[in-house]
Design a protein around this nucleic acid. Structure first.
Lengths: 169, 169
DNA sequence: AAATATTACGTGACAAGTCATATAATTTCT
DNA sequence: AGAAATTATATGACTTGTCACGTAATATTT
């Protein structure tokens, strides 16, 4: 039994190691860890959720915007914001008003409570980014981001095209 | 109005571009795109979900394992598997049995329907990986994975430590 | 041998995303 | 001007992932 389970443990370790070079499999864990760490920092910085933090940050940096604009900056589906914003308005973080010029749009603006929450979270989050810069040089970040760009481009190419080009070889 | 909204559009574009260099903000979108593409491929390859595919692949490669082992290979929480497996067993993809030697463990094994589903999905997924290799050289993948390793290490350092080291500077 | 600690698994509660589809407002085309 | 297409938002349904906590089985210590 010991011999068999040892052999098995070795195979499992080998499999895990091999999958370590598969970017597709690595991504979920890395993302989950990033999200989890972000949540911990935000907990110390006043208890905002990730979506709330991103939204307040963006609104603080660029001023009032539509939901579409927010989702474009955050590279996320608009429905995520569409769902999160009413609760944020209820907490007094933001105000939402229909645009006079274009009745389809909703203009979102940071409100006093949102500004306060931002001021509380911002230093902690800034320190997080600073800590990352201590581990990665600016050049390395540029290379890393370049990989993400290329990878994302690959991910956006239509599936049929990927399959077709492959079989055409 | 045009002037103001143009200025605003420029600010939004600038913000989006700037955030493009923030690895923390890029990750969610890249991961979401990867997942989404993966789901599309799997749809063409018989309709497995991502968790199902990963699990069948692992079981096919290394043989019967415990839930813990599966979650270790997949770098995911055991609860994810714990929840997914009963449905997979119901579909006949896997069998689950209590380990005789250690009554806490559940041994998961691929079953005929699971083998069939694997055989159906595997070629499509292999082509996906091959397509990636056409865009990234082996060396580039190694560098990319190296970045992921280092980033993940950063993400696993305790929050207090990150904050302390920073303020100690 | 009994008490204590650890480990494996299950499960509830939640966050962050997606996609598809519906509706209302605005633009564009004829 | 009216019809048709586009755009912004809302909402339902779903997947992937976490963490916390409970329970049962095993391992360790005294």
């Amino acid at each position: 039994m010991t011999k068999a389970s040892e052999r098995n443990a070795a195979r499992i370790a080998a499999r895990r190691a091999r999958e370590g070079y598969n970017v597709f499999s690595r991504l979920p864990a890395v993302y989950a860890a990033s999200r989890s760490q972000g949540q911990q920092f935000l907990q110390l910085g006043g208890g905002l959720s990730i979506v709330e933090w991103r939204t307040l940050w963006d609104l603080h940096e660029v001023g009032p915007m539509t939901i579409r604009d927010l989702s474009a900056i955050q590279r996320a589906d608009h429905s995520l914001l569409s769902r999160a914003l009413p609760a944020m308005a209820r907490k007094g973080y933001v105000t939402m008003r229909r645009d006079d010029g274009d009745g389809r749009q909703t203009i979102v603006e940071i409100a006093p409570a949102g500004r306060a929450a931002y001021d509380c979270a911002a230093p902690v989050m800034a320190r997080r980014r600073a800590a990352l810069r201590e581990v990665f040089s600016e050049e390395e970040i540029a290379v890393f981001v370049g990989f993400l760009d290329r990878f994302e481009e690959f991910l956006r190419t239509p599936v049929e095209q990927v399959l077709k080009e492959e079989s055409a070889k």
